[in-house]
Structures are given as structure tokens and as C-alpha cells.
Amino acid sequence: MPASPVIEVERLNVTYGDFAAVRDLSFQVERGELYALLGTNGAGKTSTLEVVEGHRSATSGTVRVFGESPQDRRAVRPRTGIMLQESGFSPDLTVRESVGLIGALSGRQDDVDRVLGVAGLTHKAGTRVAQLSGGEKRRLDFATAVYGGPELVILDEPTTGLDIQSRDALWAAVDRLRDEGSTIVLTTHYLEEAQQRADRIGLMHQGTLRQEGTVVELTRTLPSVISFGLPAGAPEPPIDISRANGVFHVETFGLQEDLYRLLGWAHDNGVALQELQAGPTRLDDVFRAINRD
């Protein structure tokens, strides 16, 4: 029998007055996967996450986390670590006291020093939160989310404000959690992070889920692009091309085949292609295409 999903969202609607922030949204997150929920500002990600976290009630629809209502804190929270988008720590407490407090309330067991080490905050243990930089506060947030190795970790824009070294350390910690079987839900504005790490991605726009799937499934919906320039007087190649600002573009679902044809034509005709670029469709392209709708 297959394991039941960790998160089940079914026909979720969230409205604020007349404004529908989330409309008829359905998705599932399976055990052990990293699911990225992406979208522009105002796409409905935060409202969706807040319902999944139990911070907000759904206007209609059903959300289950581990088969329970997310608002049943005693049932759900000991299994869930939440990294909020905004900090939410008391400025007068130290880093150690903050992790100790949230850890004690998490319903999980862990060693505060170990968690501080995971988040790279050991040297800041005795520093008051008011004296931390923005990046250090994000790491503190991460530390409280991963305290006790929860089965589900919700990361709301985890790397915003982090330098590259801290980002790498955070992703290494997330990888270790995944190795131990944790399920991760991620929102981020850094699409390359989602492209590199997500098992599945949900793309939201204007409150609805426009596309969902693996990176391969999402990117194959759009053609790849070959772009190049031609020297003056050169003939045009015998493939469908468009031209903008002196640069030729070929949109293709057969990248390798068309690139081979183009290079063969250039070789046969003695044409040196200028600034030749060719690459598969990126998540950015899918994202932009959705937002153009």
C-alpha cells in the first residue's frame, strides 16, 4: 500500500474581503520529496503556506497535514518545522535562548548546541537577537525549523539575505534532512535553487496552480532556443528563424537535431556563426511564460 501524502490540499480557496488570494488550489506533497511552490509576488504562495502551516483558516476547501487538520497543533507541530518568511524573535533573548525556547515548545527533542552548529551560529550563541544581521536571523529561523529533525520542514524563502557560503551550508543541512527522510516544502524567488533541488514544482499565478511537475516535465512544454548572429552578406540558414536586433533565434523542441543542422549548414557554406548560444529551456522561461498569460 503506498504511503499517504504528507500534505493534501484539495480545492483550497482563501479570500480577503472581495479579493481571492487562492482559487480552487489542489496539490499533494509526497513523503520524502522536496516540493517547491513558486510564483510571483501576490501569486498566493504565502496564503497557501499559511493555511498549510495552520496560521490561517481556509475560506473553503480541505487541507490535511499528516492526515490531520494543520490547526491541530498538538498533532501536527511535533512533526513539522516551520521557517517563517519574517523573523519573529524576541530582540532581548540570545540566540541560544531563542533556539532553546522554540525547541522546548516544538514537541521534539534535540541538543541546542548541535542545532546551533547546523545553522552555523555556534559563535553567536550568546548574542542577543537584536544584534544579529539579517542573514544571521534567517539562520536562526532555520535552526528553530530543523530542531529535532522534523518529518516535514516548511521553508518560506529560506535563503533570502544569505551570502553564498551560508546558502551552501543551509542546502547541505537540508540535504542531510532529506537523507534522514524529511519532506521539504520550499518557496523561493531563486528559481535556480528550485530547478536544482526540487523533485516537483508547483507554479502559481494569480491564486491558481498553473503548472505542476518535475523540472523536465515543466521545461519540455516550451521550446529551447538557439541564437546567433550572421556576418554581413551571409545567406540565411534553411531553418525557421526569427530575427530581433540583428540576432537570429530558432525555437525548437528538437534542440540537438536543429543545432546539428545549423552547424552543418554553417560548415558547408563557410559561415562563421557569431555569439552562438544554445541551451535547454530553463525554469525561468516557464515562469515568464506563465506570468505573461
Binding site: 502551516e53 495552520g54 496560521h55 497543533r73 498538538r74 507541530r77 511535533p78 516551520i82 517563517l84 519574517e86 523573523s87 519573529g88 524573535f89 524576541s90 522554540i102 515548545l105 516544538s106 514537541g107 528553530t144
Partner: peptide, 10 residues
């Protein structure tokens, strides 16, 4: 947002 933080726990 410390209250929200506390409500993120059990």
C-alpha cells in the same frame, strides 16, 4: 511576530 513564532510550535 514573536506571537506568530510561538504559534508555529506545538
Amino acid at each position: 511576530l514573536f506571537l506568530k513564532r510561538l504559534r508555529s510550535t506545538a
